[in-house]
Nucleic acid binder design. Structure first.
Length: 900
RNA sequence: GGGCGGUUAGCUCAGUUGGUUAGAGCGUUGCGUUGACAUCGCAAAGGCCGUAGGUUCGAGUCCUAUACCGCCCACCA
């Protein structure tokens, strides 16, 4: 006989060992080894590509959420017998990683410029080797059953090849172009960023009013307002509304740019809002997106007045070399001196800030690489519209449409060093571009040798967009790509729907002609227990590692999974994790009980099955649970499914069945045998269904259960069709739902009466302060339920702690017990001698109160049945209410008798 | 300016084909520890399901309006 299991589940000792074992056994990925249990070339596989975390990232609760969720799906599908592949990997995260390395360089007193590109890249790779991988270890800690033999990194040689292929194909197709455009410039990072990387924040600023004086009439002027006076240096027109009576007479005249003295025209366009500001708009084509568009329309000159670090350039005259904000101040002072200023007032405005670091973004004209996105976007829209891709929850579909329908060309070049370098070479001889898959030795046009590669790298999201297929080997037609692509579910946060999901869909369709996945499951953001955003600076960040150390990985996973609903943000607190740790402990201890019970069970039954009501009841409830879980999983309601398993396990299996099982086991013989069998199978079924939520405790316990069951001479069978125990829970069969049968509901109803009786008696005992250990007598007047009560009496007595020897059961009784507490449950009268001297008045008052409640219900139901409800509602619904009414009537009658 | 989400017990949240006494965890109160579990058990208190209309025999659930909180998108100087 095995050594007894410890009272508390020791997760620390178990987790690491089990993870290693699963991995060593090859359970994680479908391998090409047919001996491996989870490989079946005949079946369509279930595949998830991991949202690759930043290679130098650290684990936070967001990771805990997505890892738990994806691992749940993978483990579920694997248990269902579907070859399940979860491809792990990490992202080089261009800007984020480069900034980290630059920071460390700064500490050393140097900079990337100082050490040069080559050295810098070496340093970054070294950094990656040192700190990358940390995150992967932490993801393993969460129990992620990824196939680590297929781990990928976006800067891997193979993935880099995919990036080149993608770029060149788009270029050859004319979907990638290079040119000067208005882009968002981050002066601190000195790189262009995409529209998505700009965040707008409402801030208080100043609206400056000043005079644009006429070239030929210095005393007269047009008043103009701006929030960015320094851009005056780049103005090339003043624009008014064509129908504005104040200004239309000025259209076509020239005004003078303050300080610089350039003459610029007054033009007219309906774009201008007459009511806003002064009704006259200064036009700075090179530093404002609107002005940029307007300038194209009116053929205006474009004057850039800022350099890469947002200092004034040579076009700024006397201000050349000044920082943008210093220039703003100085220019305004100079204008004040010259009497060109009207006023300034506080003004609430929306300013663009960098998603990284938060510095002010400057709109600038810059030569960059772009993807002509419209054709890709149209295809991506179609894929969702025609249902090839489904977004869960559905409401995000609209958000997706809206974004893609209004999408602008994607600026993909970044002036960074860490990333995939743009595969374009410029010829110093003929000036033409060479764009190709392999590094060229010469210009493809003039064959000149003087070529140099474009210094820029690609937006990180360009390589991320290829992730679902680049990780499987694309552009090669690898066996993996052919078998596993398209993937199944893309599970990620709604915050990167545009950044990542939409781009994977666009690229997937463009390069593979297929949708990269059929379902997008979006989870929400993780917040603290009061709904605040987690941030380290505010000190409210909860470290998942701490939670795992204190409460176990299972507890954390269960919290993430059960506490979240698709697309909604979720609040996490240590308290919740603690509560779920208690649940895993409950599972462990219930398991200890079951194992102990089966070890002591008789070897084999002498007679055929004879199920007790409790046996049938727990079976019925289990069947219902299996069906519900199946239905919930099919609609991605993993949280609700987990909650139901939790409730079943604790409130029904542990609280009721196990308690009754103790009684049944004490009867020895066949009854004990069948009880043990039921215990084993119900526990086994629960462990199977809980495994995707809490893999460690379930696998550990299941191993002990299996061992005990197999060692026992009776060889207790598991809850599966095969009748044999699998090698491990992680690859065990998922419980299959059976058709609902009539007896289930009847059994649940019948047992419900027992539960009600037990609760009522316990309740009365508690009210009367009867020590829980004191057995009391009882009298049941059960009418036609006499036999039923008689058969269930041991159960009732055990659970309500009644004294079997003195209990009386009667069909009816002419002389009711006097001076006792009286209860009526489902037409059964129960009398309890709860104290020597019952306060008759108080008892009467209690009964009368109960009676009035019930009479209220009777009245409500009578009214209900008399209302149109009786005719219009479905028969079953009406019948249900009618029966309820009958029950109440019966009960009321009995109580009335008691009151007398 | 457009769109979305939230509003349910003291706190944090479930509640997906509308079915008639609305659930959980934590917290609170009372009782209880010699064998599954104090990381526990038994019991109790606690809810005009934001507000106002509407549809329906029936609404926490569907529709309309509205308030507050939050988020996303958008070029008003």
């Amino acid at each position: 006989m095995a050594t007894p299991l410890p009272k508390a589940y020791d997760f620390k000792a178990t987790e690491q060992e089990l993870y290693q074992w699963w991995n060593d056994q090859g359970y994680f990925g479908p391998s090409n080894d047919p001996k491996k249990p989870n490989f079946d070339p005949g079946k369509k596989p279930f595949v998830i590509s991991i949202p690759p975390p930043n290679v130098t990232g650290e684990l936070h609760l967001g990771h805990a959420l997505f890892v738990s969720m994806e691992d749940l799906m993978i483990r579920y599908m694997r248990m269902k017998g579907t070859p399940a592949l979860w491809v792990p990997g990490s992202d080089h995260a261009g800007i984020a990683t480069q900034l980290k390395v630059e920071k460390s360089l700064l500490k050393e007193g140097t900079s990337r410029e100082a050490i040069g590109r080559k050295e810098f890249l070496q340093r970054t790779w070294a950094w990656k080797e040192k700190y990358g991988g940390m995150i992967q270890l932490q993801i393993r800690r969460l129990g992620a059953s990824c196939d680590w033999t297929r781990e990928r990194f976006t800067l891997d040689e193979r993935l880099s090849k995919a990036v080149r292929e993608a770029f060149v194909r788009l270029y050859e197709k004319g979907l990638i172009y290079r040119g000067p455009r208005m882009i968002n410039w981050s002066p601190g990072l000195r790189t262009a960023v995409s529209d998505l990387e700009v965040e707008y924040s409402d801030e208080m600023g100043t609206l400056y009013y000043f005079k644009y004086v006429f070239a030929d009439e210095p005393e007269a002027f047009i008043p103009v307002a701006t929030t960015r006076p320094e851009t005056i240096l780049g103005d090339t027109a003043v624009c008014v509304h064509p129908d504005d009576d104040r200004y239309k007479k000025y259209i076509g005249r020239k005004v003078v740019v303050p300080i610089l003295g350039r003459e610029i025209p007054v033009i007219a366009d309906e774009y201008v809002t007459r009511e806003f500001g002064t009704g006259a708009l200064k036009i700075t084509p090179a530093h404002d997106p609107n002005d940029y568009a307007l300038a194209h329309k009116h053929n205006l000159e474009f004057i850039s007045m800022l350099d890469e670090s947002a200092h004034v350039n040579e076009n700024g005259g006397p201000y050349q070399g000044m920082d943008r904000f210093a220039c703003r101040k100085k220019l305004w002072e100079d204008m004040q001196e010259k009497g060109l200023v009207i006023k300034e007032e506080p003004y609430k405005m929306t300013v663009p800030r960098s998603q990284r670091g938060g510095e002010l973004i400057e709109p600038m004209i810059s030569t960059q690489w772009f993807i002509k996105i419209k054709p890709l976007a149209d295809a991506a829209l179609e894929a969702v519209r025609d249902g090839r891709i489904k977004i869960v929850p559905d409401r995000f579909t609209k958000v997706y449409y809206n974004w893609l329908e209004n999408i602008q060309d994607w600026c993909i070049s970044r002036q960074l060093w860490w990333g995939h370098r743009i595969p374009v070479w410029y010829c110093d001889d003929c000036g033409k571009m060479t764009v190709q898959r392999d590094d060229p030795q010469e210009c493809m046009h003039c064959h000149g040798k003087n070529i140099h590669q474009d210094p820029d790298v690609l937006d990180t999201w360009f390589s991320s967009g290829l992730w679902p297929f680049s990780t499987l080997g694309w552009p090669e037609k690898t066996p993996d790509l052919q078998y596993f692509y398209p993937t199944s579910v893309m599970e990620t946060g709604y915050d990167i729907l545009f950044f990542w999901v939409a781009r994977m869909i666009m690229f997937g369709l463009e390069f593979t002609g297929q949708v990269p996945f059929h379902t997008v499951y979006l989870h929400g953001l993780v917040r603290d227990e009061h709904g605040q955003k987690m941030s380290k600076s505010k000190g409210v960040a909860i470290d998942p590692l701490d939670l795992m150390n204190e409460f176990s990985t299972d507890a954390l996973r269960f919290t993430m999974l059960v506490g979240s609903t698709p697309g909604n943000d979720t609040n996490v607190s240590a308290k919740k994790v603690e509560a779920n740790r208690n649940f895993t402990n409950k599972v462990w201890n219930a398991g200890r009980f079951v194992i102990g019970a089966l070890e002591q069970a008789p070897a084999a039954p002498e007679s055929a099955h004879e199920w007790t009501l409790a046996d049938s009841w727990i079976w019925a409830r289990l069947q219902q649970l299996v069906r519900d879980v199946e239905r919930l999983f099919a609609s991605y309601q993993f949280g609700e499914a987990g909650r139901q398993i939790y409730e079943f396990f604790w409130s029904e299996f542990a609280d009721w069945y196990i308690e009754i099982a103790k009684l049944q086991l004490s009867e020895k013989g066949d009854r004990a045998y069948y009880t043990a069998q039921t215990l084993v199978q119900v526990l086994d079924a629960c462990l199977r269904m809980l495994h995707p939520y809490t893999p460690y405790v379930t696998e550990a316990l299941w191993g002990h259960l299996k061992e005990a069951a197999k060692e026992h001479p009776a060889n207790f069978k598991p809850f599966n069709r095969q009748g044999a125990w699998e090698d491990a829970l992680i690859i065990a069969h998922w419980p299959e739902p059976q058709e609902e049968e009539r007896w289930e509901k009847d059994t649940v109803d019948q047992f419900g009466i027992i539960q009600e009786i037990v609760r009522a008696i316990r309740n009365s005992r508690a009210e009367k302060q009867i020590t829980p250990g004191k057995r009391i007598s009882a009298t049941f007047i059960a009418g036609e339920k006499e036999e039923f009560i008689r058969s269930q009496l041991p159960v009732i007595a055990a659970l309500a702690y009644l004294d079997m020897d003195t209990i009386m059961i009667q069909k009816s009784m002419t002389e009711k017990p006097e001076g006792q507490t009286a209860l009526v449950i489902s037409g059964i009268e129960i009398y309890l001698p709860l104290s020597e001297l019952v306060d008759l008045d108080a008892e009467k008052a209690r009964l009368e109160k109960e009676l009035s409640t019930i009479e209220g219900e009777i009245k409500r139901l009578e009214n209900l049945l008399a209302s149109p409800f009786g005719q219009k509602a479905p028969v079953a619904v009406v019948e249900k209410e009618r029966q309820k009414l009958e029950g109440y009537k019966e009960t009321a009658q009995k109580i009335k008798q008691q009151v007398k």
